[in-house]
Amino acid sequence: MKANMVTAINNALELSMKENDRIVLLGEDIGKDGGVFRVTEGLQAKFGESRVMDTPLAESGILGASIGMALAGMHPVPEVQFAGFMFLGFSQLINHASRYRSRTRSIYPVPMVVRTPVSGGVRTLEHHSDSPEAYYSHIGGLIVVEPSTPYDAKGLMIKALRMNDPVVFLEPTKLYRLFKEDIPDDMYEVPIGKAKLLSEGSDLSIITYGTMAPLVKDVVAKKKVSADVLDLRTINPLDEEAILASARKTGRVIIVHEASMSFGVGAEIAARIAENAIFELKAPVMRVASPSFPYPMPGYEKYYIPNELKVSQAIDHIMAVQD
């Protein structure tokens, strides 16, 4: 089937719900309305109101009740309408979803997939464009994934719903309908914790994910540089093996993400490369990210998010370093 990311996730949810009747969806406006981005469109009509639930407007309630359902043996898929609103339920994810398995020595795992749209570039209101992946990754115990293609979105969702873990499933708003691609009609899995090479090269490595992945791919194609473009797909647990393999191969690494620079995912990757492969590098690791302050109003976002020029200049800069 030809699918954009919205239809790919919708399809993954439908197939998974057919496979496992303990999977239920819940969230604000996800039933009759099909979600503000239409990701759950048609699913309530297919599965009924007991499996696709419109909830009261309360993020902590949605996430906390989902944890309760998971503890009771169900596999809930809560949707939080925008990542910026998920902080109202942050306590439930950090205090409970991340540590219930460990707290009970695996007697009570928390199988659930928390879906939320992330990142900007689509001129939305304040709090609708946050990139919170580092927060959820830092605690440990939460699996954090962020697909950049319809194919990966479907396969990661199917895999996440077959796992016995809490998964934070971040869906880049900008990529929801950016492009379509051919994906299999049937169920298939994309592994969790495995990055994917979007292109292979020998001169440098660009490590990225989410909204920045298609942008980096375009810049690399336009500049005709020979680059590994590594799409993480899973932020936590990090695919350290793939990162180090590429870093060692090319000796030049740029990390590109939309989330702000300081204390971000880029810092984690750079540190791991420094610890394990610094003597194999030809140039210092570079980071391209948004500046270190909260996401601005939409009028300013084009000055905030890394663009093609910023990525292109970083490539020129790192290639100019003589080893």
Binding site: G64, I67, G68, M69, L71, A72, M74, P76, N95
Partner: peptide, 22 residues
């Protein structure tokens, strides 16, 4: 198990109760 952050167990109760119904 024992839950320390005050009242954060309340939504778990609601979700577990919903699951009993389901």
């Amino acid at each position: 198990p024992i839950i320390v952050p005050v009242s954060t167990q309340m939504p778990h109760g609601a979700g577990m109760a919903m699951a009993q119904k389901y």
